[in-house]
């Protein structure tokens, strides 16, 4: 079975972005470059700004300073939201729509040329993330946590985004399901999609085995492919020791 290639040409670049909520400076000038088909893992203690960074990269939160570009061109928050998918920690599936409805809502509203092809594409997406056809007409509350997550990922992919961001994708799952999520993300990488995964689940992060960024107090502390196995920065070493304890 052959799938259509995700036509992703992502070169997502954030330059010195900053963000404050009131007097609290959550992001203090973060720069980040996400290359095509690249998988990046982002770790850090609670409140370090991981989730806020994702929301800024998706365009859900406007940034106070700095710039976000796609393929070198600045993009409006609305365009950013349409081209960079975000999978929420709590999934936030729409409870009044069934599985197909959740996938097709945004394409139906945003693509004037919406056709049968989009429906077919949605079905293929669901098959790719491992949602079987008998679930297509179920409501979210009739699905297990793992199934809900798969649907949430498929929903983020339905608009054919350039990149997908995941916020704590394993937090709502039984530990034995972690391997499924790793496989799911790896498959997307195979398909050429750029992805950022935020987590504080260390076994999960190690299983992803990819370039890893350590975020602390709104700053990038370290950014390396072997960050988890050979941390060089002292703060990263301390953080990893605390995670093991």
């Amino acid at each position: 079975m052959s799938y259509p290639q995700i036509d992703a040409v992502p070169d997502l670049r954030a330059e010195l972005i900053s963000k404050a909520y009131g007097s609290i400076q959550v992001l203090k000038g973060i720069s980040l470059h996400l290359r095509p088909a690249e998988l990046v893992c982002m770790i850090g203690s609670s409140g370090c700004g991981k989730s806020t960074l994702l929301r800024c990269l998706n365009g859900l939160e406007p940034v106070d300073g700095g710039s976000i570009t796609l393929d070198g061109a600045p993009v409006s928050p609305l365009d950013l939201r349409r081209r960079v998918g975000l999978v929420f920690q709590g999934f936030h599936l729409f409870p009044h729509l069934d599985v197909m409805g959740n996938l097709l809502l945004a394409p139906g509203l945003l693509r004037p040329e919406f056709t049968k092809e989009d429906t077919d594409y949605a079905e293929q997406l669901l098959a790719r993330v491992g949602v079987s056809p008998e679930l297509f007409n179920r409501r979210p509350h009739q699905l297990s946590g793992g199934q809900q997550q798969r649907v949430a990922i498929a929903r983020a992919l339905a608009l054919r985004p350039d990149a997908v961001l995941y916020d704590e994708p394993t937090s709502a799952l039984d530990p034995e399901r972690t391997a499924d999520v790793v496989a799911l993300i790896r498959d997307r990488q195979q398909e050429g999609l750029a992805q950022i995964v935020v987590t504080h689940d260390m076994p999960f992060a190690r299983a992803l085995a990819c370039r890893t960024i350590h975020l602390d107090h709104g700053e990038v502390v370290a950014d390396a492919a072997d960050l988890l196995t050979a941390p060089r920065d002292e703060r990263t070493q301390r953080f990893l020791r605390a995670c093991l304890a």
Binding site: L60, L78, R82, F88, H92, F94, L105, A106, L110, L159
Partner: peptide, 17 residues
């Protein structure tokens, strides 16, 4: 829940949609 609005916006819907 607030997450519903955010999920819809994050998918690229306008506020009105």
């Amino acid at each position: 829940p607030r997450g519903q609005l955010e999920a819809a916006l994050a998918l690229g819907l306008t506020q009105r949609q």
